[in-house]
Design a protein around this nucleic acid. Structure first.
Length: 636
DNA sequence: CCCGGAAGCT
DNA sequence: AGCTTCCGGG
């Protein structure tokens, strides 16, 4: 077994063996979210894409942080490359010093609140991600990781921890993480606050902004999805992070809401039952009653599942379930299509029914699982992986579920937990052990059974997802997790494959577990809905439709490295047209920017966006701060 | 520049 | 596990 021990390390901030210290990608994120460093590294382009304007500086900073004076871009880039396999990052081909995070659902899901950069200039490319936390990890790709879940990630805790971490200064000292806790430099806080408002606006403005939606959702929804991170606790509205460095085992619920959230008009939070989904079912009579909530949730969940969202995400929250797709419902598919405002869906849930504010501590473990590593790459994977896979088998789930599940079962599910259990059939490795998320498998293989059931469309959908892989970055992955469709943009970046959130738990899970199951089997309870039997299906269909439309419109572009993809399959997808890549123009822009930036140009750039329609503007603030770098130098 | 294998460190 | 170092290759 794997059990916690194995996985723990993942969360552990600094203590874990192996990795605990700050991880490079965390560090990158950290820098990205700070204005001070916009001269050296900044979001740019597609969602999750960033450019290192000053490689040497970034490397230097990294070296400082890790106390590796010898660090240089060559080494740093190697480390970055190392992330390719993990699927945390990938290179944006054609653009120098430009990489892209594979944000996916996972991140969002897990750390929705994070706002990434928030900084002002954050382009759409900026994904909401937690920046500073060390704990925060992407989904694991290995088996062992898969299970990880426990400690921090688990719901509330996770958030809090993340938040805390965010608080800490980025570069700062070289201290190992060991004692990190104490550290905290306030620097961040101050800045952030100041900016707060701006950000907020920023987020509001952009059409697409995924984050926005997320934030909102979360804000509103927090309660919903998670056991609720302490809702009321908001630290400060403006301040992005609460500050507590250490995560306590349990306790900290810091609400780490993203600034955005706070900023956002709260109006919807509380109320707003989510128009979107409301559709048939709850629409009219939605209330915050527990029951309603339950139904609501279920419905969403189902939809989501069908969509291929990762179930895991949902699983995490036994009781509640997930936020669901933010997207407004599909009712109108056409409506602008797009970016529409993210609707609130989740928020509705948020409110926990009944008073729920209180407690909640569900232990749901958040486990993330990632996909198997890159198998594609070369020999290494190939040979070994194959072998391994065969052996794999199931193992698993048992461990994972157990605990948490029990408690909350009643909530949603009511029914028997159906969680699934697939023995991982083919999946490669133990990874699957966990709950076996179907989704993953699907994604990977695209076999999905579940979805198909519902409709062919679904299938397509998935395929598309898979195929896209890199889609343009529409970015939107954020929503993906919760919402399948959120913006038109959102596409799964691709990585969807990679990041999946595994879900967790069991129990409560019962409700969520598998789509198939749910749908079909769920008897009374499950069906939340409405009178007819329509319940989920309709929704699903709608979503799909929408999705399809969106996808087509967007057509993703870049497939860049098809390498990965090739693995998956061949098949049928292809429907959509893929654009070859972002147009040259884009590149040019980038280059220009880059060049300028590095040279001292100082230009920030801001915008550019390749993709579709939405765009955003950029802000021009930048320079301000190089001085701050000095902070870091502290001494090692 | 960028890519990854390989070895080594923690 | 997660880099860090080196390094040959494109």
């Amino acid at each position: 077994m794997k059990t916690q021990a194995d996985t723990e390390w993942a969360y552990k901030p600094e203590s874990s063996p192996g990795s605990r210290q700050i991880q490079l990608w965390h560090f990158i994120l950290e820098l990205l979210r700070k204005e001070e460093y916009h001269d050296v590294i900044a979001w740019q382009g597609d969602y999750g894409e960033f450019v290192i304007k000053d490689p040497d500086e970034v490397a230097r900073l990294w070296g400082v942080r890790k106390c590796k004076p010898q660090m240089n871009y060559d080494k740093l880039s190697r480390a970055l490359r190392y992330y390719y396999n993990k699927r945390i990052l990938h290179k944006t081909k054609g653009k120098r010093f430009t990489y892209k995070f594979n944000f996916n659902k996972l991140v969002l899901v897990n750390y929705p609140f994070i706002d990434m950069g928030s900084g002002r200039g954050v382009p759409q490319s900026a994904p909401p991600v937690p920046s500073g936390g060390t704990h925060f990890r992407f989904p694991p790709s290995t088996p062992s990781e898969v299970l990880s879940s426990s400690e921090e990630l688990r719901s509330p805790g996770m958030f809090s921890s993340v938040a805390r971490r965010m608080a800490r200064g980025s570069v700062s000292d070289c201290s190992d993480g060991t004692s990190t806790n104490s550290e905290m430099e306030e620097t961040v806080g101050a800045e952030e606050r100041a900016v707060g408002p701006e950000r907020a606006y920023r987020s509001l403005l952009p059409p697409r902004m995924p984050h926005d939606s997320l934030f909102r959702v979360y804000g509103a929804a927090n309660p919903v999805g998670l056991p609720r991170p302490a809702p009321r606790v908001h630290p400060e509205p403006l301040s992005p992070f609460p500050v507590s460095p250490l995560p306590g085992p349990g306790g900290l619920l810091a609400p780490t809401l993203s600034p955005a959230l706070s900023m956002t008009p709260t109006p919807h939070l509380p109320y707003t039952p989510s128009p979107s989904l409301s559709s048939p079912m709850m629409g009219s009579h939605f209330s915050f009653n527990p029951e309603d909530m339950k139904h609501y949730l279920q419905a969403h969940t189902q939809s989501v599942y069908n969509y291929h969202l990762s179930p895991r995400a949902f699983l995490h929250y036994p009781n509640i379930i997930i936020p669901q797709p933010h997207r407004p419902t599909p009712e109108k598919p056409a409506a602008h299509h797009l970016h529409g405002p993210p609707m609130p869906l989740s928020h509705s849930l948020n409110q926990q029914p009944g008073g729920g504010e209180d407690g909640h501590q569900h232990p749901s473990p958040f486990k993330f699982k990632l996909q198997p590593p890159p198998l594609g790459r070369k020999q290494r994977d190939a040979g070994s992986s194959m072998a391994a896979s065969s052996s794999s088998s199931s193992s698993s789930q048992s461990s994972s579920f157990t605990g948490s599940a029990q408690k909350s079962s009643s909530v949603l599910a009511g029914g028997p937990p159906k969680i699934k259990v697939e023995p991982t059939s083919d999946i490669e490795s133990e990874e699957e052990v966990e709950v076996t998320d179907i989704s993953e498998e699907d994604e990977m293989n695209h076999k999905d059974d579940e979805a198909d059931i519902f409709t062919p469309a679904a299938r397509q959908h998935r395929l598309q997802f898979n195929n896209h892989h890199q889609a343009n970055g529409n970015g939107s992955s954020l929503s993906a997790p919760f919402l399948p469709h959120s913006n038109p943009d959102d596409d799964p970046d691709d990585d969807e494959e990679v990041f999946k959130t595994p879900a967790t738990p069991p129990l409560g899970g019962a409700s969520l577990p598998l789509p198939l199951i749910n749908l079909k089997s769920e008897p009374g309870q499950a069906a939340p809905i409405s009178p007819g039997g329509t319940r989920c299906i309709p929704l699903k269909l709608r979503f799909k439709r929408r999705w399809s439309e969106d996808q087509k419109m967007e057509a993703d572009g870049e497939r860049d490295e098809a390498e990965d993809k090739k693995v998956r399959a061949e098949g049928e997808d292809e429907v959509e047209a893929k654009r070859e890549e972002a147009p040259a123009a884009v590149r040019r822009v980038n280059e220009v920017e880059n060049g300028g930036g590095r040279g001292g140009g100082g230009v920030i750039l801001g915008l550019k966006l390749p993709p579709p329609p939405t765009q955003r503007r950029a802000s021009s603030e930048l320079q301000r701060a190089t001085a701050q770098l000095s902070l870091e130098n502290s001494g090692c």
